[in-house]
């Protein structure tokens, strides 16, 4: 039987923790929330249950920091705030130097995503737009503004190749964007499948499959039928997984080894899903593997797998806590997958 072991609890934030981001190569985390700070955490390399707070970045904004993300090379940290700004720090060892404050959004910025090559940054806001920024450390500059959705844009993420940008919205849809010539961006597909706000999307490592989560309490698995072929992507719904959460699902992530999806939300629950029989090539075989009730003492706003430590994941909650978990998948299933 699979199980989820709580490794440790990180407590430093005074209010709700909204987001958690793993460092791309090190056992480090950045977390942020309603207390208007970003905390940077470091794991003891000899003991995954020992963490220390390496830095607190608390002078950047006077409002909630909704989300934060390390750049793919770990040299920068971006954070977005309800005060409509995007803040960039340059990382030098344990010190974080404020590098830039990007202004342009009209109101709350909700999410930020670095393109995998690190050259671009996407942000989205309640102002219904997505902004694309040139991530040149000399001069972070706005490249394009996509008046993208009919409502609040909740979340943005790039596919692993960096070819597509995906956005999720309060208008219940997911949109797929590509850069065309002359820095023009086009929406190449709009995915309808959820019946309420889409809070998050995640890709498997191949970029062929995507999972989305929603206020409608379901997770949907999508596959790009045109992956690797010329022409626009053709995402179709291959599976809907309702019934494992009974309140809004706020966050979803797909482990880097491609095997396990994690979701969490307003029902204080962490759920893990994987392909039955271990066949990772068949996304329609994905089903629930494990559910952890009361994983936090309140809503769970974010869940993320470590990109470097297999089976380790972090979650952030309204209980002001960040929790580190180790997932022990079913041994039989695990053996099949390798």
């Amino acid at each position: 039987m699979p199980s989820l072991e709580q490794v440790t609890i990180l407590h430093r934030h005074d209010e709700c923790v909204w987001h958690v981001s793993w460092h791309p190569t090190k056992a480090m985390l950045a977390t942020c929330g309603s207390d208007k700070t970003v905390c940077v955490w470091k794991m003891d390399p000899d003991d995954e249950s020992q963490w220390s707070c390496a830095a607190i970045l608390d002078e950047a904004t006077s409002r909630t920091i909704r989300s934060c993300e390390w750049s793919p090379d770990g040299k920068f940290l971006a954070a977005v705030s309800f005060d409509a700004t995007v803040i960039i720090w340059e990382v030098a060892g344990n010190s974080f130097e404020p590098l830039a404050t990007l202004e342009g959004h009209e109101n709350e910025v909700k999410s930020v995503a670095w393109r995998p090559d690190g050259f671009m940054l996407a942000t989205c806001s309640r102002d219904k737009s997505i902004w694309i920024w040139d991530a040149d450390p000399e001069e972070f500059e706005s490249i394009s503004v996509l008046p993208s959705h009919n409502q609040d844009v909740k979340f943005v993420r790039w596919d692993p190749s960096g070819e597509y940008l995906v956005s999720a919205s309060y208008d219940d849809t997911i949109k797929i964007w590509v850069e065309e010539e002359d820095e023009e961006w086009a929406c190449v597909q709009t995915l309808n499948g959820h019946s309420s706000t889409v809070w998050g999307v995640a890709f498997d490592s191949s970029g062929k499959n995507m999972a989305s989560c929603s206020d409608d309490c379901s997770v949907i698995i999508w596959t790009n039928q045109n992956k690797g072929k010329p022409g626009p992507p053709k995402w179709t719904q291959v599976k809907c997984l309702p019934g494992h959460h009974d309140r809004a699902i706020l966050s979803i992530d797909w482990s880097k080894d491609g095997n396990t999806i994690a979701s969490c939300g307003e029902d204080d629950r962490l759920c893990l899903y994987g392909p039955k029989g271990g066949d990772t090539d068949d996304p329609s075989s994905i089903e629930i593997e494990y559910c952890k009730e009361n994983a936090h003492d309140g809503d769970i706003n974010c869940v993320r797998w470590s990109p470097v430590l297999p089976h380790l994941l972090a979650s952030a909650g309204d209980d002001c806590e960040v929790r580190i978990w180790r997932y022990h998948p079913d041994k039989f299933r695990e053996a099949l997958r390798q």
């Binding site: 709350e108 706000t197 206020d215």
Partner: peptide, 15 residues
């Protein structure tokens, strides 16, 4: 109903 039960919007409104 959708607006009132969107925790992110409520949190932002209260700031």
């Amino acid at each position: 109903n959708k607006q009132l039960n969107d925790k992110e919007r409520v949190a932002a409104a209260l700031e």
